[in-house]
Design a protein around this nucleic acid. Structure first.
Lengths: 176, 176
DNA sequence: TGTACATCAGTGAACGCGCGTTCACTGATGTAC
DNA sequence: TGTACATCAGTGAACGCGCGTTCACTGATGTAC
């Protein structure tokens, strides 16, 4: 085993995401991640300090990616909703860690900033769409969030021959 | 400690639900449940065989309760949705176990039956509301499910002075 | 009413395991001169 | 170009812990006669 891996930090985050996709964030084990990355079990500590540090880094990256995705679709709330659903289904493990309360260093500055950026975009889009009616905005958020979790949890799947994007588009089209 | 507890089975399920409410179903520990119930750590085995057995029993009870709640509101889809949201927020730990895949004896006959009953009611209500349009039915389900998870995860809360029921009612009213 | 006995419900010690974290270490790399 | 040295990145042994499960056991209950 080489002493200098190249980009172990990246490799550990990627294998952690694989593990999360399989067993969920609560069951994540540092030693398992190290095994998957083919590295000694103490190596991750060097990059993330501890388990919470690893999960915090993943959550921060997830919110940043979501922010980036939303940023490309600020024009219409329907498109914002589609982007939300596509992010969740495209990054189910990130999505799971982002929603895992208590596993993450809540006060972490980078995490808070990334969360805020994505949250602001969502709120702004919802407000513009609903012309200030908070119920309509909440209904829209609930719908895209609900569709995301149903898809991620495997309780709903697109028809064969169709895909997540067009499913999301037709569902958000059903909004008042 | 009395050798005959009275209704230890019930007590263990209740304390397990408390533990799930605090730390989620994946982190549930049999020994912790026994400690909370003030009983030796081997006692739960006697009633549930093993950890999976306990979670399966909880999930089965959850689906049964949801089925009962939906049964009272078969008339309108809006009311069905409200009942769904009220069940989720009223029984957040059950709701979490019911959505926890892999922690439960999937093939368990009682569990499958309870799931099917609740699922059929939901589908029937959605179909009647949407007059056969599957997209509208999915949009409705996604909305009530999404609102439920947002409330349960604490990402949304009713305005002070309002409550979950009227929030759910106004959101479901926003459906095409 | 009394007693023997089967069954039920819970105890507590023991097992082996995987975990997170700490620690002294060692090999690889890059920089100063 | 060569060499000394600081720093970086990963190793592997060790720790103490909580876990799920098993086991022989014991006390409580209910039933047959």
């Amino acid at each position: 085993m080489a002493y200098h891996h190249g980009d172990l930090r990246r490799a550990i985050m990627d294998t952690a995401l694989e593990a999360v996709a399989e067993h969920g964030p609560v069951a994540l084990s540092l030693r398992d991640v190290a095994r998957r990355a083919e590295v000694s079990h103490a190596a991750p500590t060097h990059h993330f300090r501890d388990k919470t540090g690893l999960l915090t880094a993943i959550a921060t990256e997830g919110w940043t990616l979501l922010g980036n995705a939303l940023d490309l679709h600020r024009g219409s709330f329907a498109e914002l909703g589609v982007a939300y659903v596509l992010f969740a289904t495209g990054h189910p493990a990130d999505f799971a860690v982002m929603r895992a309360p208590g596993l993450v260093r809540g006060g972490d500055a980078d995490l808070v900033e990334a969360q805020q950026r994505a949250g602001d975009m969502l709120q702004e889009g919802a407000r513009r769409h609903s012309e200030g009616d908070p119920t309509t905005a909440l209904a829209g958020w609930a719908m895209v969030h609900g569709l995301s979790t149903l898809l991620v949890d495997g309780m709903v799947a697109p028809e064969p021959g169709s895909d997540v994007e067009s499913l999301a588009r037709s569902v958000t089209g059903r909004l008042g």
